[in-house]
Design a protein around this nucleic acid. Structure first.
Lengths: 117, 117
DNA sequence: TCAGCAACTTACCATAAGGTAAGTTATTGT
DNA sequence: ACAATAACTTACCTTATGGTAAGTTGCTGA
């Protein structure tokens, strides 16, 4: 998708309710976001490397970037354990869990689309 | 979003159901796709210029590109009236109409997200 | 004769997202 | 002494998407 990320979503010049949709897409539009959601959807927090293994072939750089953005957007929590080597666990927030509806809708429609060919 | 368009969606290397989601996103990921859907959602077919006015400030180039892709993806119909100056009407197909679920899910979640700040 | 119209097409350019590959940190096990 | 480890960061590059501005078509009304 090409919904660029924004720092502040401005609904001012959006008299209609496009804004809500734009918000959703700007937040979920990253190439790996929904896959990260999927990895964490079970409820169990995962470590950086565990997520990375699940999403392969994602790069370290991309994974950190996407995780940071999702954290900023309050979709997931990041817990740092002060040990060496480092240990960091990521889990879904309440807002993160509320993505389920979108996930299901996209999955269902995708199946419909694929079937129709 | 950064779900690049594909000619054939390959589910072969996708043992999980990610494929359906990827299909959805690759098809809806265009910057204007969901706005075009929204414009046509009432059921009434619209002309190129009418859509353009509704979506402003979209460029001619982008609008044609997005419409063409949606047509290829069987989301909308394109009816050409052989008159001069040209008249072309776009409307939703059955598959196009089935996007409603995604539309609603994105809209609802976006509202939730915006409220939580 | 010629500007105006709708629906394009074309050439060119700007931006952003993401990839690759390497480096960083501080401790622990060999 | 030193390689290994997890979770990054950095510099650099490629690609895709979309924007701008101009041109095209063929008839019609002034």
């Amino acid at each position: 998708m090409s919904y660029s990320r924004r720092t502040t979503i401005n609904c001012e010049n959006n008299p209609e309710s496009d804004c809500a949709i734009e918000a959703s897409l700007s937040i979920l539009g990253g190439k790996w976001k929904l896959k990260i959601y999927k990895a964490l959807r079970s409820g169990k927090p995962l470590r950086f490397t565990e997520i990375k293994t699940l999403l392969e072939p994602i790069s370290d750089k991309s994974l950190t970037a996407q995780l940071r953005e999702m954290e900023e957007d309050n979709l997931l929590t990041r817990e740092v354990y002060p040990v060496i080597p480092p240990k960091v666990e990521y889990g879904l927030t309440t807002l993160g869990n509320s993505l389920e509806g979108i996930f299901i809708a996209l999955e269902q429609w995708g199946k419909t689309y694929i079937d129709q060919r």
